[in-house]
Design a protein around this nucleic acid. Structure first.
Lengths: 244, 244
DNA sequence: GTTCGTGTTCCACTAGGCGGAACAGATGCC
DNA sequence: GGCATCTGTTCCGCCTAGTGGAACACGAAC
């Protein structure tokens, strides 16, 4: 239960750097610590490769050493490598970006994304967390975990666009539909001008451990295509993944 | 210069977990610290999401929180996303695995890898470091940095296979060739049964900031193909990448 | 030149981390 | 069954190692 203060603080500093490179003074203010303390923490982290100075005596940013550590995270990296071929298949079938994400608490953590070469691209969410209620990848998880759904609904849901479903009853309704169909569509519910579909990846014992999703600009996706056909393709692709 | 002991220790623990999940007692032995200390460090790291327990009261492994931090590392993640289409192109042209790596000290850090669907696959080196002298991706970096080459040659070079070049004179010779051709081939120099080619990715000011490489089983790669043709294709592909 | 900004270093103080030992479970072996 | 031996966690007195205000060193801007 007791925690080591300096480690706690070191991670606060690291997290504050995920927003982008920053100087000691900036960081000190953000994490509410004395400059000297932050400087000491940073120079320790630098020796460990967790951060690096952009130019000697200048700003700090997250270091490459973190990549090595993150590469060992499971099911993170292992899932990424097995899912790649399936993402490529989704790219080919839909012409749009495809990604994998995993549930983490009440959010989805986006692990990887494959984007076809195209002029108009959606942004890369790799490494970010998004609340489950706002994205179809979250919906396929919630639809299969009543307890988690209750927990999500226990707190107020954040609205991202005018179409985000933030009320309990309609969300429960949606989850019933998703459970029945096996895939989830969302139209501009998380970001304006972005539509997406998702389906669940299950382990051998049937538990949902990840989600595959496809998303693209609302202007062309799904366009005049059959949403059920796309949904079922995503579902079939997700079912091909065997892990854990 | 002074470092914070507990942070130092926490990272030792994290690094020891990159080899795979382990228990408190195991870790304590590996990092030469008392069990109680390791237990305290781990529970702190767990609260921060840096590690997680596989099952309550059991082994620990690297946590998903690390992915978020690592996602902010530059040029790491940004390079990965811009290099993806080029890796796919290399897949298509050669039928073999393609990857990106960046120089870090005297080693190459492997950031990403795209592997075509095939029965016989090479392993994924993502997140690992490999000494520059042993891999073609390292060669294209060394060939363009005389000072770094000197530094590498100042210490004894590790032999990985019977074909690894570990003597100064032959390596210098090779670097001259690589500099002239623009790409580097290596035949079973790092791992038995594995051949690979690499070419440098440069930023606007001409400095080598990364390497693209293709590798496959020696049994079929490059086979009867023209090594110069493949090399030049990799070079051309690497030159398409614009970053920083 | 001065002034303001940066990041780093100093050092007395004491809070916070340390680690040996005791503990609570789980598993294995006879 | 019960004893032995693992596991990870908690306790608590000792004291080191981390803290943070202030002073410092450097660089840029005026």
């Amino acid at each position: 239960m007791s925690t080591v203060q300096s480690i706690d603080r070191a991670f606060s500093v690291l997290r504050s750097l995920t927003a982008g490179p920053a100087g000691v003074t900036d960081i000190a203010e953000r994490v509410h610590l004395p400059k000297s303390t932050v400087s000491r923490l940073l120079s320790t982290l630098e020796e460990l490769g967790a951060v690096e100075q952009v130019s000697a005596g200048g700003e700090y940013r997250i270091g490459l050493g973190m990549l090595e550590l993150a590469a060992a995270a499971r099911p993170g990296r292992s899932l990424v490598s097995v899912a790649r071929p399936q993402l490529a298949e989704l790219n080919r079938f839909t012409g749009e970006a495809a990604g994998v994400s995993i549930p983490d608490g009440t959010e989805m953590l986006y692990l990887d994304q494959l984007t076809p070469d195209s002029e108009l691209q959606v942004r890369d969410w790799t490494g970010h967390r998004i609340p489950m209620h706002a994205v179809p990848s979250g919906h396929v998880v919630l639809a299969n975990d009543r307890e988690l759904l209750d927990r999500v609904l226990a707190t107020p849901l954040k609205r991202f666009t005018p179409h985000t479903v933030v009320k309990a009853a309609p969300l429960r309704e949606r989850m019933n539909m998703v459970r029945a169909e096996g895939y989830a569509w969302a139209f501009e519910e998380f970001a304006d001008g972005m539509n997406s579909v998702a389906a669940a990846v299950r382990n051998d014992s049937g538990r949902v451990i990840a989600a595959l999703h496809v998303y693209g600009p609302a202007s062309r996706f799904p366009g005049t295509s059959d949403t059920a056909e796309i949904g079922e393709f995503v579902l079939a692709t997700a079912q091909k993944i065997r892990i854990d």
